[in-house]
Design a protein around this nucleic acid. Structure first.
Lengths: 192, 192
DNA sequence: CAGATTATGTGACGTTTGACACAATCCCTT
DNA sequence: AAGGGATTGTGTCAAACGTCACATAATCTG
């Protein structure tokens, strides 16, 4: 039996429903991709042509500022990711997408994606609902950054997604929290 | 001639195209609303039933934390706003939407919106493209918060949207920048 | 227009954070 | 198992920030 992402897409049903037929149509355009650790899916300055779905493994998004890496997102199994600004607006990407673990991905070319949107109202609705979900999560993340101080931000990671700490380094996490590596290390000491 | 939001929707064509027919269909469900300064469109704990379009005036989104207001967004003419998490997921809102200037709005009930999505693929596509735009802006805002220090954040407001300073108080702006009112005041002195 | 209210500026001081340097520990590969 | 590179912890110090208190300026309201 040929591998297919249709099965994995089922795990997204909490975000948006998708009929069997639509899943097959969507899956029909998927391209399978094995990745090693630290592979780049996209580099700053390049144009983003794909959306990816993580079957296994993990990815991060980051950009450079003053020669330092600023990590802005971590992505794990059963999630989509892309650089939407580059994909949609045909501009060079202003951040990198890199794997942080070996694994396997499915990807869709943007031309196929837009075609699927126009062919299937159901897939278009799925895309919209995925974006709603993305935006809501991003908005929550922004509010969280503005509302909590560094110690509270770390504590909430501990409380709500402790698995994140098992899969990303503290150095990577620190810029995600908006603080220095050393400060995060001291917060950890205080809280233990 | 009856007032209509169809004309104002034209100003959104840079985000997504919409035919005359679709605009009329969309506008047909719009409800006009005059607002005074400091009116609440939505309060924390309430359920959000509408999306709004600002014809004139301005709004802010904010929530309370430790008895302080945290401002998370400012919205002006020709923009949509809503509490998408509450609207979409039928949960109580976790932030307020309040006008900061008197003006006039158009609003759509969520039931009408979802109906329009299902009736018109073009409006559905418009909704998706609006969400893409929203998400991209929110993502940029998050990256900006993580990348820049308070002085750089204020400077970039000066550089890229100086009009914001004419329309929101420094007290409101400070929590938006993630700093205290006094620190913002001192940054202003340093930069002048 | 006057009084009240709100917004903004500033001084003082304690706390937190970042930067740099270096030590300790963890892991990854061979 | 050992070596080497990466990650994490920690000491020191200067700079940045928050908080409290109060002064000044701007704005609102009747």
């Amino acid at each position: 039996m040929k591998p297919s992402p249709a099965h994995f897409l089922q795990s997204l049903l909490h975000i948006a429903s998708l009929s069997h037929e639509a899943r097959e149509l969507f899956a029909g355009k998927a391209i399978f991709q094995k990745v090693k650790k630290a592979d780049y899916l996209l580099r700053e300055g390049q144009h983003c042509h794909y959306i990816w779905f993580i079957e296994s493994g993990a990815c991060r998004t980051f950009h450079y500022y003053h020669e330092k890496e600023i990590n802005t997102g971590f992505y794990f199994e059963n999630t989509f990711l892309t650089n939407l600004n580059s994909l949609r607006n045909n501009v060079p990407a202003d951040y990198n997408i890199q794997t942080t673990e070996a694994g396997s991905l499915w990807k869709w070319h943007k031309d196929d994606l837009f075609l699927l949107y126009s062919q299937s109202p159901e897939i278009a609705a799925f895309g919209r609902q995925w974006l709603e979900h993305l935006f809501i999560e991003q908005e929550k993340h922004t509010h969280w950054l503005k509302t909590n101080n560094p110690e509270e931000r770390y504590q909430s990671i501990l409380d709500t997604q402790p698995s994140l700490l098992q899969r990303v380094s503290l150095t990577q996490l620190s810029s995600y929290l908006g603080i220095s590596r050393e400060t995060l290390s001291r917060i950890r000491r205080r809280l233990s």
